[in-house]
Amino acid sequence: MTGLELKSVSIRAETSPEPLFPPLSFTVPRGTVTTIVGPSGIGKSTLMDFIGGHLPRGFRAAGVVALDGRDVTRLPAEARRIGILFQGAALFPHLSVGDNLAFGLAPHVRGREARRAAVKAALDHADLPGFADRDPATLSGGQRARAALMRTLLAEPCALLLDEPFSALDPSLRNDLREFVFSHVRDRAIPTLMVTHDEADAGAAGGPVIAL
C-alpha cells in the first residue's frame, strides 16, 4: 500500500476515558490531499501531532500510522520523514531565509556549492529569488509560508501534514498559496493530510473530506 495510512487511530486525554473522536481509518494516496475538518477543540491538531510523532504529554493514542506500508507508529518524529507545515510557518528567527532552507535540505546533498545551489533553486522556485540572506522577520506572511514549504520539501518527506497553514493569511493571498502548495504536492506525489476549519481550503484541495 503506498501513501499515508491510518488504521483505527484514536486518541484520548489521560484524564478521560472517552476518546476525542471515533477511531479513524483511511488512506491518503500519493499526490492527493485529504482534508480533515471539524470544530476547534475536537483534537484535529492532536491527531496531527500523533501522526507526526509529537503527541504531547497527557494524551494516550491507539492505532497504527503506516507510510508506504511501513509502520512508523513507534518511530521518533525525526525518523518518520513526515513533514509539517504550520500556521505562521515557524521559520527559525536566528537563521537567514537561506539558512532556514539549508537546515531542511537533506544531508545527502553534499558540498558547500551543491547545497547553496539547491537552496537557491528552491528559493527561485518559490518566487523568492535573492532572499537567501534576508532575515525571516522581514518577510510577509505569504513569503514566509512559501519559504517554510520549501524548507519542508527540501527534507524530502514521504508525507506532508498541513496544520491550518493558510488561516493566518489574507484571503487574497490564500488562493495563490493553496495553489502553490497543492501543485507541489501533486508534482512530487506526496500524500498530504490537511486540517482546517475553512471550507474553502477543503474545496481547493480537491480530495476526500473527513469531518470529525
Binding site: P76, A77, G104
Partner: peptide
Amino acid sequence: RAARALGYG
C-alpha cells in the same frame, strides 16, 4: 516539532 519533522534528533 518543526526541526524534528525535518529529520533532526
